[in-house]
Write a protein that binds this DNA or RNA. Structure first.
Length: 193
DNA sequence: CAATAGATCATCT
DNA sequence: GATGATCTATTGC
């Protein structure tokens, strides 16, 4: 298995990281999945006033991680029910992160299925932000975890591959619902709906 | 298949 | 006290 992506990979604008993450592999213990869908959330430095981003109002106890150094996990609870995994991008002091929205299961599929309550069909195992954290066993305990080492990492593909990147507005947000900040592998059937 | 309701709580006002 | 980067079950066609 390839080494984890280095910190430098994450030390650039969130949009670049969101695109570059497509095709890489999220690994947690014995389970892993290929990232096929991401969304970028921008900080004030983008000049875009991204009100959909948690970092929009500046540093708070929750958003501390997003303003920290790149290459760490930001995990939060949504609707009091599910948890979402983000990757922190951009240098320390600059807000910017990438929501992982969907995975193509690679290893440990039976384990993922049991964690998902036995849902049938590999396609439905991790094709959404709340589903993939469940399937991979990722929780708020991973908030602030270093993705360049340890049990939870992101690694390059085994072999270089040719993919087409699709772009669309982000899903499920109220503000800035027109910005084209969602990226996905064109034609991949594990992308969320 | 499409539309809708409800679950449930950390965070910030 | 309101809100939300979601998902599932259930309803109705």
């Amino acid at each position: 298995m390839p080494e984890p992506l280095p910190r430098a990979f994450y030390n650039r604008p969130a949009i670049e990281v969101a695109r570059a993450l497509l095709g890489t592999v999220l690994v947690h213990g014995t389970t892993s999945g290929r990232i096929v869908e991401t969304e970028a959330y921008l900080g004030p430095q983008s000049g875009l006033e991204d009100r959909a981003a948690h970092s929009w109002r500046g540093v708070t106890p929750r958003t501390r991680v997003i303003f920290g150094p790149p290459g760490y996990a930001y995990v939060y609870l949504i609707y009091g029910v599910y948890e979402c995994l983000n990757v922190v991008a951009e240098p320390k002091g600059s807000a910017g992160c990438v929501l992982i929205r969907a995975l193509e299961p690679v290893a440990g599929i039976p384990r993922m299925r049991s964690r998902r309550g036995g849902v049938p069909g590999v396609e439905r195992l991790a094709n959404g932000p709340g589903k993939l954290t469940l399937a991979m066993g990722i929780t708020r305990r991973h908030n602030g975890a270093d993705l360049t080492r340890g049990r939870l990492t992101i690694r390059p593909p085994e072999r270089p591959e040719d993919i087409r990147i699709g772009v669309s507005p982000r899903i499920g947000i109220k503000h800035c619902a027109d910005l084209p900040l969602r990226f996905f592998i064109e034609g991949n059937r594990f992308v969320s709906r």
